[in-house]
Computed example of a mutant assay.
Amino acid sequence: MQSSDQQAYDRGVTVFSPDGRLYQVEYAREAVKRGSPAVGVAAADAVVFAAHGRPRSPLMEPDSIEKVHDLDGRLGVASAGHVADARRLVDYGRQFAQRERLRYGEAPAVEPVAKAVADQIQESTQSGGTRPFGAALLVGGVVDDGPHLYEIDPSGTPAEWRATAVGDGSEAIRSHLEAEYATGLDADAGLSLALSALEEGADEELTALEVDVAVLDESGFEAFDRDRRATALDDADLSAAS
Score class of each variant (00 low, 15 high):
117 V>E: 01
11 R>F: 02
216 L>D: 06
105 G>D: 05
116 A>W: 02
134 G>C: 11
168 D>P: 04
232 A>V: 08
124 S>W: 08
163 A>Y: 00
186 D>V: 14
240 A>C: 14
5 D>S: 10
183 T>I: 08
2 Q>H: 15
160 E>Q: 15
198 L>T: 04
32 V>W: 00
125 T>K: 01
37 P>A: 15
110 V>A: 11
221 F>P: 05
180 E>L: 11
7 Q>V: 09
155 S>Q: 07
169 G>W: 01
58 P>H: 06
160 E>I: 09
115 K>H: 14
197 A>K: 03
113 V>K: 10
122 Q>T: 09
27 Y>M: 06
43 A>D: 07
68 V>C: 05
239 S>N: 11
170 S>K: 08
95 Q>V: 11
17 S>Q: 00
90 V>P: 05
3 S>G: 15
133 F>I: 03
171 E>C: 09
200 E>M: 13
94 R>M: 11
128 G>E: 10
138 L>I: 11
233 L>K: 03
148 H>R: 15
14 T>R: 04
190 G>I: 06
77 V>P: 03
213 V>A: 11
60 M>I: 05
32 V>Q: 08
180 E>F: 05
129 G>P: 12
182 A>R: 15
189 A>Q: 10
91 D>W: 07
35 G>I: 01
37 P>V: 07
136 A>F: 00
164 T>D: 08
236 A>I: 05
242 S>R: 12
27 Y>L: 07
101 R>G: 08
216 L>A: 12
94 R>S: 13
32 V>C: 13
13 V>R: 01
78 A>N: 06
141 G>K: 04
93 G>H: 00
140 G>T: 07
92 Y>Q: 10
93 G>A: 15
73 G>F: 02
235 D>H: 12
218 E>V: 14
66 E>G: 08
99 R>W: 08
227 D>E: 12
158 P>T: 10
65 I>N: 04
171 E>W: 01
184 G>C: 12
168 D>Q: 15
54 R>F: 02
77 V>W: 00
14 T>S: 13
129 G>E: 09
154 P>K: 04
105 G>T: 07
33 K>A: 15
208 A>T: 07
38 A>E: 03
51 A>R: 02
90 V>Q: 03
223 A>Q: 11
112 P>H: 10
22 L>V: 00
56 R>I: 11
115 K>G: 03
184 G>Y: 05
163 A>N: 07
21 R>D: 00
177 L>F: 03
146 G>P: 12
89 L>G: 06
223 A>W: 00
166 V>P: 06
98 Q>H: 13
202 A>E: 04
157 T>R: 05
229 R>W: 01
216 L>T: 09
81 G>H: 02
159 A>L: 14
154 P>S: 11
168 D>W: 03
107 A>D: 10
58 P>G: 09
185 L>H: 02
134 G>T: 04
174 R>A: 12
12 G>N: 12
76 G>A: 15
222 E>H: 14
76 G>Y: 00
40 G>V: 08
141 G>H: 03
29 R>Y: 02
59 L>S: 13
111 E>I: 12
188 D>Q: 13
111 E>T: 15
101 R>I: 05
131 R>V: 09
238 L>T: 09
40 G>C: 12
96 F>K: 10
220 G>R: 05
180 E>R: 14
22 L>I: 00
45 D>T: 15
48 V>I: 15
170 S>Y: 03
6 Q>I: 10
17 S>T: 01
91 D>E: 14
54 R>V: 14
59 L>Y: 11
207 T>D: 06
164 T>F: 00
76 G>T: 05
169 G>A: 12
25 V>L: 01
